[in-house]
Write a protein that binds this DNA or RNA. Structure first.
Lengths: 185, 185
DNA sequence: ATCTGCATGTAACACGTTACATGATTTT
DNA sequence: AAAATCATGTAACGTGTTACATGCAGAT
C-alpha cells in the first residue's frame, strides 16, 4: 500500500515521468523502498484511474515522447491522509531474509558460517560507504526540485537511519562471530 | 521466495501441522518474517506438489483431524541449497515503511512530527521489552523440538539482532527529535 | 451465552518480480 | 561495434493480505 504513496510524495515536489521517478527511487529511496520500473508504470496507471494524478504527453524529437504526471487535488489529499496516519500504526518490522537464514544456519559448519558472515560484513561496509557518499539534495537539484530546509531535514533523517542500520548490522556480525568462536572451543 | 524455506527449515526440526507452524512463526519468527496462516496453508500445498514435503492425516476425536507435514529428502536438499547461497547475495535491505513516511514528513508540522515520533519510540520500547522476555528455547521445547546447542546459538543470534535493531531505532528517534528541535529555533 | 482454542481451508484482491518488446541516440 | 541512455509498456508469475466458511470443545 505504499509505493503508491511514495510516488504521490515525489509528485508533490514536481511533475515527473515514470522514467524519472524510477531514477529518483533508485538514487534516493532504494535503501528503504526498492522499486521496479515496471511496477512504477503500473502504479501510475492505477493512480491515474483513481484520479490522484493526471498525465500529459510531451512530444520530443530526439528522444521518445514522455508522459509527465502531476498530482491532483485529490492526490494531495490522499498523500496528507496517509502521512497523518501515525507511524506507530505501521507494521514495525518487515522481512529480514538474512535473519531467516541465520535462524537455520546450524545445518552448516562453523567455518562456512564464519566465512559467510565475513563476506556479508564486507558488503555492509561497502553499502555504508555508498550511502555516506550519496547526496540526495544534489540529486534532487538535478531534477529541479526545490530544496526547502524542512524537506532536507527529513531527507537527512532517513539517510541517518540507513547509516545507523548498516553500522548496527556490522556490530551484530562481530557479536555473532564472537559467539560462534566461543562455542567452537 | 522465502516463506517456503522458513517452513522447510522448521520441518527439518520436526513434523508439524499448518496450525502448529503458524504458532511457531508467530512466537519465534514473526520479528523477521511475519506470516499469515492462510499463506502457510497455501505454501504447504505448493511444497507438497513440489515433492519437498509429505503429509499424513492424524485422526482425532475431540479435535478436528490434523495434517502433519514432514520433510522429504528432496526438501532437505532444497533447504541446504538455499542455506548455501551466501547471505551477501540476498537483497540487503527490504522495505521500511516508517522511513518512507519520514522522507515526506515535511508536509506536516514540527509539533505533529515530534508527537508522532514520541509515540513511535514508545512502541519500539514495548516491542523491545517483549523481545527480551521471549524465550525461543522454551517455545520449541513445548513443540518437542530438540534443542541442540548449535541451534540455540543461531536462534540467539537472531534475537540479538531484534534487540539491536529496536535499540538503534530508539537512538535514531532521539537524534531526529534533536534535529527538529535545532531547526525549530 | 460468548469467547478462545483447535484445525483446515478457499476466493479475491493487492503488491512485487522477471522477462520480453521496441527503437532512436549517444557514449565507450 | 557494442553498450548505455532515453522512454514506454505488457504478460506471466510469485508472494502477501483480507475476508469468509465450518464446527466442535472447553473455559469465562
Amino acid at each position: 500500500m505504499s509505493l503508491k504513496h511514495g510516488i504521490l510524495g515525489l509528485l508533490s515536489y514536481h511533475e515527473f515521468s515514470g522514467y524519472e521517478l524510477n531514477r529518483i527511487f533508485a538514487d534516493s529511496l532504494a535503501f528503504f523502498w526498492p522499486a521496479q520500473i515496471s511496477q512504477i508504470y503500473r502504479e501510475l496507471t492505477t493512480l491515474e484511474k483513481a484520479g490522484w494524478v493526471q498525465s500529459r504527453t510531451i512530444v520530443q524529437q530526439d528522444h521518445p515522447n514522455k508522459k509527465l504526471f502531476r498530482l491532483t487535488d485529490e492526490g494531495r489529499q490522499e498523500l496528507t491522509r496517509w502521512l497523518s496516519v501515525p507511524k506507530a500504526d505501521e507494521p514495525l518490522s518487515s522481512k529480514f531474509p538474512i535473519m531467516l537464514k541465520t535462524f537455520f544456519s546450524s545445518d552448516l559448519s562453523f567455518e562456512w558460517n564464519l566465512a559467510d558472515l565475513k563476506r556479508l560484513r564486507q558488503k555492509y561496509e561497502d553499502e555504508l560507504r555508498r550511502l555516506r557518499a550519496a547526496n540526495i539534495e544534489k540529486e534532487f537539484a538535478v531534477q529541479s526540485v526545490e530544496i526547502k530546509p524542512n524537506r532536507a531535514l527529513y531527507w537527512q533523517a532517513t539517510m541517518l537511519f540507513g547509516q545507523s542500520y548498516y553500522e548496527m548490522c556490522m556490530r551484530w556480525i562481530d557479536s555473532v562471530v564472537a559467539m560462534i568462536e566461543n562455542q567452537e572451543r
